[in-house]
Structure formats: structure tokens, C-alpha cells
Design a protein around this nucleic acid. Structure first.
Lengths: 257, 257
DNA sequence: CGATCGCTTGATTCATGTCAAGCTAGGTGG
DNA sequence: CCACCTAGCTTGACATGAATCAAGCGATCG
């Protein structure tokens, strides 16, 4: 807690234009002038901690949240108390877009580790976007990206066996860490095995078994939550993603009834 | 084919302001002036037929499509040829939003029956939206709605047993038909059992068995593709959606670890 | 009238869930 | 500092729901 002040001051100073995430987050492709306007409506909160709730299902939408560091999970919860995790959100991602339609959050968002977020009042953002075509465009792009990644998850949940789900999960994380300038090869899981199994629609035991199997097969090394990817190609094969070489030869179109 | 011309003329006359779908589709909440501008960029195509492709995965994004009558399925297709249907789209829904991020359609869209659509050039729509806050807002709402319905499907695919998936599917269709002014009780499935099974992540045989079971249990009557819902409450129970009465007593919050 | 396609139904197999037990790291209190 | 406790994870044994395989039915179409 002694360095809380230090972090807060640092946070408040760090604006979008100097943020390392500007190419992933809202500011992408926005002119310096417009960027300044955007910065004015964004507030940088001091870090939230593991287990802290950003917003809860049922709460009215007031702000969107951009993850700056750390990791946030979002999940929907049914009447009978079952949860389905809808995403693990890494730096540069925007949360709360699914709340726009009813002005109410359908998901709960919880920090998986110490995480810092930017808070963006949605009505102000929308107002600004209506004068700022590039911002509007970027918002459309972000929502579209979300739609596409949802489709990928549907495919995983609907069609893939347990080993493919786990492999795809690891590769997806690896890739996203890589995009953010971290190692694609070695990274930490901020979510528990239970979270992973929930997200992938599997039992915890199944996830654990797949981790073990991949490890004995020499594809990864997993020590507690530290993952080291050893054989990307093999994992891609399992995940149902052909390697670039194979892709060429496997390609075929017009094969639907 | 003899009434093709008749339909075409009728189509071209029918503008957004007189369209029965204006409360579901883009025009919602848009002023008459703005509506006229919107109408100018929308073209009404004559009907497409069963099996016709609206757009194919990999094609560049040029237009969004609004369904006016009929039904369109969208699906992603993996390198190894597996398909996952991502949605069945009824009148008033907008297709192609997932293509914005990369200017390329990730999905293929195919008509399940004779279907008429409005074609909306995306760049013009975006341009218009940047001058028309109400249109921008409506676009955000539509994308947000899509995100939410994706989350529902994830829950279904990740957590629910086969009977719950099929029950939820029937109730969802029933509800959407109801919203469009059709009967909630009796409707036609425009998709095959294979499509349903693909969408729900099940085998065809399982879907068929569930239909049979629901029928012998007196919950529905299914004759070929004509569905009659007989016991909504029981279906909701199976789908994991409590009836309004139960909901009250079952409610509980703050039950996450 | 026969062929085909979409669907249903039954028998069997298999992947994954469930149950149960044990392990390990990290935290807590004596 | 050690012993215990707990939570999270792993591993094994077993149960089961849904996939697969196989056969037959019925409507539609040429």
C-alpha cells in the first residue's frame, strides 16, 4: 500500500498520447486534436485489486472501461446461478459495450489481478464520437472485433474437442500477449484453472489433464501459472489451426451443401 | 417466377418510413429528416432464394444487409472445413457488422428461404452516421444487441445440456417471431435439423430426439418444420429460464467466490 | 414409380463429466 | 521455526450423456 500514491500520480500523468496501448485501444488513428478531446473525458483510476468488481450485472451503464494493465474477466450469470465467463480482457481492450442496448450491464466484470483501467463515461464518449468521425470509426471497429472474437469462441464451444479448446486458449493468450509487446513464449495465467474451464465449457479436471498431456508431450511447460510454449506448430495442429505451410495445400472453397 | 416482377416493384416502393420493421431495424428513433437521408443510401434488392449467398467469408466488406423478410444464416468456416453457424437472422436484423474490423467478411451469409434484404453501403452509412447522432446511437445499440445475443449463445454452448439448448432455441425463435408480430405459439422453422444441430453444437440425431421427447411430453407439436408451442413454462424450465413466479423466490446475489 | 434427401429411431461407443483421493504451495498460529 | 490448514490443482476410477453407427421411414422430385 505504500506505493499506492506513487502509482496514482503516475497514472494520472499518463495520457492516451503517451500510452503504450494507443494502437490497440480507442486512440488508434485519431488525430492529435481529437485525441486531446478524448483524453479530457477519460479518467484514470488507481489500480483495482484481485477480486474487485468493476461493474455488476444489472447495474446501469455509466462508463466503459479500458484495461491498461492487468486482466479483467467478464461473465454472465443465469437465474439459477450458473456463470459463463465471456472473456478475459487484456490491456488495450474495452469493456462494457454489451451494455449499450439496454443501458444495463448484462455481465459482471471482476479483476483477476492488480489491474489499472481507464474509465470513460459512455454518453460523453458517444457525444464526442458524433463530432469525431475517426473516433466513431474506431468504436465501430472495436465492437466489430468483439463480435468476431465471440464467433471464434462459439466455434470453439460448439465444435471443438477438449484438447483443441485448451490449445486454442493457450495460443490465443500467447498471441495477445505478443501483440502487446510481451513474450509469446512465456507468460503468466492470471486466471485460475476453474476460470479457464468455465470459459472453455469444460470441467476443471479436463483442463488439468490437457495441461498435463501437453506437458508430457513436450508441447508446453506449465509450472503453476507460468506457461512456456515449446511447440507452437503442434499446438496449432491440435487447435485446428493449420500451420502456414499446410494452409496453402489444405485450402478448399465451395464445399457447403 | 411469374410474380417476380410484382415483388420487385413492391419492394422498391417500400421505404423505411413505411416499413413494418422500423422499430427493430436501423430507423428506430431517427427523425423524419434523417430517415430520408438514410433511405437514400439504402437499396432494396429483389428477393434472394434458398441457398443464395449474400456474401462469402473472405470477401471485402462493401455493404451491410438488413433482413426484411425471410431468414438468413451466417457461419464461419475453419481451415479444415468445419462450419459453425453463428446466427439465424430474422427480419429487422442487420448483417455484416463483424466485417468492419478487417474490412473483410469473416462469415458467409446464405438465405434459408426466399428472403428480401436491404443493402446498405457501409462507408456511406458510416458517413451519414457521423452527421446523425441518432443513427450513430442506433448503430451502437444494434452492435451491442449482437454482442449480448452472442453471450447468450456462449452460455448455451458452454454450460447447457442438449435438452436445454433445444428448448432455449425454440423459445428464442418464438420470442423473436412474437416481437415481429407473428405468432409466438406457431411458426415455421426455415432451417434444417442439420442447421439447428450445427448452431447448437449437437448432433442431428440429438436434436431430433429432443424434438421427439418434447413432443411425447406434450410440450410442443412438431410436424416437419411447423412448430407449435404447447407448454411455454415447461420449456422455460428445461431451458434454465425460470418462470416469472419462481424468479422472485430464486433470486440471490453476491454468490461468487 | 423409383431415387433421393431429410429426418427419426435404436444400438453401441467414447469422450468428458463426476466422484474421490491425494498432492503442493502458501499462509497462519502455536 | 515448525506443524497444520486450506485452496488450488492433479490424478485415478467410474458413470453417463451425447456422438457415432446403422437402419428404416416418409415426403418430394424427376
Amino acid at each position: 500500500m505504500s506505493n499506492n500514491n506513487v502509482m496514482r500520480i503516475q497514472d494520472l500523468k499518463q495520457a492516451c498520447k503517451s500510452c503504450s496501448l494507443r494502437d490497440l485501444c480507442l486512440p488508434l488513428g485519431i488525430s492529435p486534436n481529437d485525441l486531446e478531446l478524448l483524453e479530457n473525458i477519460i479518467s484514470r483510476k488507481r489500480p483495482v485489486h484481485r477480486g474487485d468488481v468493476l461493474y455488476q450485472a444489472g447495474h446501469p451503464l455509466s462508463c466503459l472501461f479500458a484495461v491498461r494493465a492487468g486482466c479483467i474477466k467478464t461473465f454472465i450469470i443465469t437465474d439459477d446461478g450458473e456463470e459463463q465467463i465471456t472473456g478475459f480482457h487484456l490491456p488495450g481492450e474495452l469493456l462494457g459495450l454489451d451494455a449499450i442496448i439496454h443501458d444495463v450491464h448484462p455481465c459482471t466484470a471482476v479483476a483477476l489481478e492488480t489491474t489499472s483501467v481507464c474509465e470513460i463515461p459512455f454518453d460523453q464518449l458517444e457525444e464526442l464520437a458524433s463530432h469525431t468521425p475517426s473516433l466513431q470509426h474506431q468504436l465501430f471497429r472495436i465492437m466489430s472485433r468483439e463480435l468476431q472474437s465471440d464467433e471464434q469462441l462459439m466455434l470453439l464451444l460448439g465444435k471443438r474437442a477438449s484438447d483443441a479448446r485448451v490449445a486454442a486458449f493457450l495460443l490465443n493468450l500467447s498471441d495477445r500477449f505478443g501483440q502487446r509487446g510481451f513474450s509469446r513464449r512465456e507468460f503468466n495465467l492470471s486466471m485460475s484453472r476453474i476460470d479457464i474451464s468455465n470459459y472453455l465449457g469444460l470441467a476443471v479436471e479436463t483442463v488439468s489433464r490437457m495441461f498435463s498431456r501437453f506437458q508430457t508431450d513436450g508441447l508446453v511447460e506449465i509450472d503453476r501459472r507460468l506457461v512456456t510454449i515449446l511447440d507452437v506448430d503442434a499446438l496449432q495442429e491440435i487447435a485446428g489451426i493449420r500451420t502456414p505451410n499446410d494452409q496453402q495445400s489444405m485450402r478448399q472453397s465451395d464445399t457447403h451443401s
